[in-house]
C-alpha cells in the first residue's frame, strides 16, 4: 500500500531527520520526496511504501502525528488513492 505524507509547519532544524528517522523505525520505505518553503512555511511531501510496515495504518498515523507535535509541525498520512483518483482518470 502506498501513502502520501505531508508535513507542514514552521521551519526549524531537524524536521527531515526527525520524520525520516521515525519512518525508518516504522519500516516504512520512502519512494519520493519533495520539499520546499511555501509562504514561509516548511512544506514536505513524501510518497511512502507501507508494505513492510508492521503497525496498522491507524497506529502509524498516531505515532507520526505525535512526532509532528514534538517537532512543532503538522504531519498527515493519507492513502495515495485519494489524490490519484481526484486528479487523474
Amino acid at each position: 500500500m502506498k501513502a502520501i505524507l505531508t508535513v507542514i509547519g514552521k521551519d526549524r532544524v531537524g524536521i527531515i531527520a526527525g520524520v525520516s528517522g521515525k519512518l525508518a523505525e516504522l519500516h516504512v520505505n520512502i519512494l519520493d520526496v519533495s520539499q520546499t518553503i511555501m509562504n514561509g512555511y516548511f512544506t514536505m511531501m513524501m510518497i511512502l511504501d507501507l508494505s513492510e510496515a508492521g503497525d496498522s495504518f491507524g497506529e502509524m498515523k498516531k505515532l507520526l502525528a505525535d512526532k509532528g507535535n514534538e517537532l512543532g509541525v503538522q504531519i498527515k498520512i493519507q492513502r495515495e488513492e485519494i489524490f490519484t483518483s481526484m486528479h487523474s482518470l
Partner: peptide
C-alpha cells in the same frame, strides 16, 4: 503526483 495537486486536495 504534483505537489500542487496534493495540496489542493488537502486544502
Amino acid at each position: 503526483m504534483e505537489t500542487t495537486q496534493i495540496l489542493e486536495t488537502i486544502r
